[in-house]
């Protein structure tokens, strides 16, 4: 057994003259949730469809669950669950009919399992799909990806169209899958969508992987935003020397700064004055992450 679920090397995909992927090197470990982040047109969908052998690379190689998708696609797809970025199905059937058929293509998935997942996501299986809202259609997509408990879930923007409650539920399902030792590879545009669920995030830009980070490391490195409103103006010197305080600005009676590390000294310094309100905001990983990789000197960031 290998502990690498997905590995790609120098994966290139061109569509005529258009760049799809420009030499992607990816490594996803077994049992992790990997967030695959990138702006529109970066190549996320292209990557995912290459992994499932829906499209073929121009050059480079991919190994998914130790299998080359081009050689043993059927065996590979038996062990994966896939949710397309744009989950489209014939609307003239009910969710139950579709899921039964898709289950049969996998050798059968029990009715109870489908029913339980549908209930969990609050999905009505007996309505014609064309009559469902976008979010409800997306739920069918989530169910078909998870219902056979695949070793590897490959999900293209899985939470698009889902309301916050369902995004939470989805995140739980993804975490449960990895608790069983399964792997989740999911794409997204935004950090906030993957930061509660992902163990690691990789950023793809213009067909290349720009950076990979552990979410935990990012959190540790990240600085919280602090805003304190005092009853009266305070002198800046008193706070400038407090350990961990960065980017300090004092605007009359309002203090703003970023805090790296413990809050103790800052709180004690503030306590010498009358504090009207105090807020410490969780760091914006998005900002940090993009800031971080921008500093790595990646060119072509014109947009």
């Amino acid at each position: 057994m290998t502990d690498i679920a997905i590995r790609t090397q120098g994966l290139v995909k061109t569509y005529g003259k258009t760049r799809g992927l420009a030499g992607l090197a990816l490594e996803v470990q077994t049992g992790e949730v990997y967030g695959f982040l990138g702006p529109n047109g970066a190549g996320k969908t292209t990557t995912i469809r290459l992994l499932l052998d829906l499209i073929r690379p121009t050059s480079g190689s991919a190994q998914v669950l130790g299998i080359d998708p081009q050689v043993e696609g059927v065996a590979l797809r038996a062990r994966t669950g896939y949710l397309a970025g744009d989950f489209l199905v014939d609307g003239r059937q009910t969710g139950r009919q579709l899921l039964t058929y898709l289950g049969n293509l996998r050798g059968g998935v029990s009715k109870d399992r489908i029913g339980a997942l549908a209930e969990r996501l609050d999905l009505d299986l007996d309505r014609k799909i064309k009559g469902l809202s976008r979010g409800n259609r997306q739920k069918i997509g989530v169910v078909q990806a998870f219902m056979h408990d695949p070793e590897l879930l490959i999900l293209d923007e899985p939470t698009s169209g889902l309301d916050p409650f369902l995004q939470q539920e989805f995140a739980k399902m993804a975490r449960e899958a990895t608790a069983d030792g399964r792997t989740v590879f999911m794409s997204s545009h935004i950090m906030s969508e993957v930061q509660q669920v992902a163990d690691r995030v990789g950023i793809i830009r213009e067909g290349k992987l720009v950076t990979v980070e552990r979410v935990e490391d990012l959190r540790e490195r990240s600085m919280r935003k602090v805003v304190i409103q005092f009853a009266a103006p305070v002198p800046a010197e008193e706070f400038a020397s407090v350990p961990g305080v960065r980017d300090l600005t004092i605007d009359g009676a309002v203090l703003r700064c970023r805090l790296d590390g413990m809050a103790d000294t800052l709180v004690k310094a503030a306590a010498r004055h009358t504090v009207v309100t105090l807020s410490i905001e969780e760091a914006d990983l998005e900002e940090l992450f993009f800031h971080h990789y921008a500093n790595h000197g990646e060119a072509g960031d014109a947009a």
Partner: peptide
Amino acid sequence: DLVLAHPV
């Protein structure tokens, strides 16, 4: 797409 992402 969906059908071809299955083991067929």
